[in-house]
Nucleic acid binder design. Structure first.
Lengths: 331, 331
DNA sequence: GCCGTGAATCGAAGCGCTTCGATCATCGCC
DNA sequence: GGCGATGATCGAAGCGCTTCGATTCACGGC
């Protein structure tokens, strides 16, 4: 293994000079910098991560806690994770993967052992047991999702309330009077996951404001459940002309089931989805949708953490505004 | 921050004794051990990860490289990742997440900087550019997937050839004479991803052995593509009575499309899938399938690495035998 | 009663890096 | 022409842990 003293000797400088070349924390003459960098390249030197962490009390690693629960759409989680890793690398950091299962204790472990400098926690619940721990930790964190009592914690997410609202508004604007929201699986509402409730709230608010008929229907994330629900809607809500779907695995089966019952999309039924952009684009027909900006959530979580690590103050709440893209599923 | 000297003082022993209590590398009297453990608990001591890594030249972190490519089923990747993290924790290790994007250079970086002790590389291609690097690295690695030239590298995966064979065998055993394999998207074959080719090989071998009619049909991972392909099969292969599907997003649309064309599953068409167990179970009808054992792959990758880190010799190839579970989609 | 042996513990060195103060040369300025 | 500033570099301390002798003590065998 080649170490900093090897580089120093090879370049004819002291180890501290090599360190300063690498960190840029003191000025170094151009000539010396060149020589040192050349030696580093020639010898293939990589600073020892542990030694660096020990001396600088910075590990350059972020923790990312991913959810394991049912009812959440796995590709979105993955997309956030990949975006976070990519963003972290741009800031010369790496990402340590933790599962929900590790719980509160896991957060304390990686923080107290100085394994990580900061934490990103996904799928935060309204009353999340991890919040007290995150508050008392000496390391910065960012929550993806909004708990009931966020106050001093830094949170980020799509503004799901506004998203639900925007979808209902869209249908109202197109003249629909009887609409429905096909939402997350019942267990997601049951465990007080903020985003599902907020979509429903926003939806209901717009329904009220426009004097529409509109209900919220939770739905299991299976094609079968989707078909069953569509059957029920056809029976109970004969005048239904517009549907908002916020449940990825169910979107295509819903469109198909309505079609099979003679309610073709978009001619006899308008559909608006809340889902990742690519899913809406590649659907048949392409769906008018509010994008779930997973990439942006992942990337900005990291950027918030970097700012905090740099001593900057950041806004406590980052609510990404919904962007609705009109496609071929409504009229 | 509480450190080992604090614990030592509190327990009335030397730091080295605390260290030996924790590592178990030397014998410690029961009384001393008790006292030290009590002090650790009382003070809430956590060894500093960086210091430990520096002194012991072990970081207790594994790298996991996940794929980003299209055509691979995201939930399987996630399942492997979660299983790997869970298994790693059981062995007191953590997992660092890397993306394919980091490439060969990323592997060298985390290995040479001693950030990780060992590596797991997913989605290995037949001729994978990362192989030479992995060979010359001084750290152990495990590949998920089999490259063309694996020789000294440790690899693990489902035996996809045997899986393809088992599915065709199953249909042959039920008396079907004209069958098809609906496979991965064309780009997956094009980039020489071993598993897709191996399923096809196994399928063809069984077809030949039983004198069946059987072809392989790549298929994009969209419902639309599935319906188009089913249309084509109905036209080109009127005598078709059995189908093997190895393409998760397409399974349900295929069953539906055949059903819509009057070829109900299982009465007029038998379907056998290669997919994760839960997907097959929750399909409608539940599908006879060979399980893709993502959990086991993740878990055993970690166990192989742990064995290697412990100096044990491990088999170069671990081919998990396919397990076919009969359900309601064939007869 | 002495010695060898093994168990239990300690002290000190050292892992590879960062960082702080000190040193020394250079420079512009009054 | 001397002086404070500024820039460039060095040396040494120290980050918190593991590990390698060395030391001490108790005990059994002869």
């Amino acid at each position: 293994m080649v170490k900093i003293t090897d580089v120093a000797r090879h370049a004819g400088v002291s180890p501290s000079t090599v360190s300063y070349v690498l960190s840029g924390k003191r000025s170094i003459s151009a000539g010396t910098r060149e020589r040192v960098l050349a030696s580093i390249a020639e010898l293939g030197y990589r600073p020892h991560a542990g030694a660096r962490a020990l001396a600088s009390s910075r590990s350059n690693v972020l923790a990312l806690v991913i959810p394991l629960r049912s009812g959440i759409h796995v590709p979105v989680v993955m997309q956030i994770a990949v975006a976070a890793v990519t963003a972290a690398r741009r800031h010369d950091h790496d990402v340590l993967l933790l599962t929900q299962e590790e719980g509160v204790e896991g957060l304390r472990r990686v923080a107290d052992s100085a394994l990580v400098d900061a934490l990103i926690v996904m799928d935060v619940q309204m009353r999340d047991p991890r919040l007290p721990m995150l508050r008392e930790l000496d390391r910065p964190s960012v929550l993806i999702g909004f708990p009931a009592d966020a106050d001093d914690l830094t949170c980020i997410d799509l503004d799901f309330r506004a998203a639900g609202e925007a979808c209902a508004e869209r249908l109202a604007g197109l003249g629909h009077r009887s609409i429905a929201l096909i939402g997350s699986p019942p267990e997601v509402y049951a465990r007080q996951t903020g985003y599902a409730q907020r979509v429903a709230e926003g939806f209901r608010a717009a329904v009220r404001r426009h004097g529409l008929t509109g209900e919220v229907y939770p739905c299991e994330a299976t094609a079968e459940a989707a078909r069953a629900l569509v059957g029920r809607l056809l029976a109970e809500r004969p005048g239904l002309t517009g549907v908002v779907v916020h449940n990825e695995p169910v979107m295509e089966p819903v469109v198909r089931a309505f079609g099979a019952a003679g309610r073709r999309v978009p001619d006899e039924l308008s559909v608006v989805a809340i889902c990742p952009e690519d899913l809406a684009e590649h659907a048949d027909p392409p769906l008018t949708s509010v994008a779930v900006p997973a990439d942006e959530v992942g990337r900005r979580s990291v950027e918030l953490l970097m700012a905090k690590l740099g001593g900057e103050r950041v806004p406590a709440a980052t609510l990404l505004p919904p962007r609705l893209t009109a496609r071929a599923s409504d009229r």
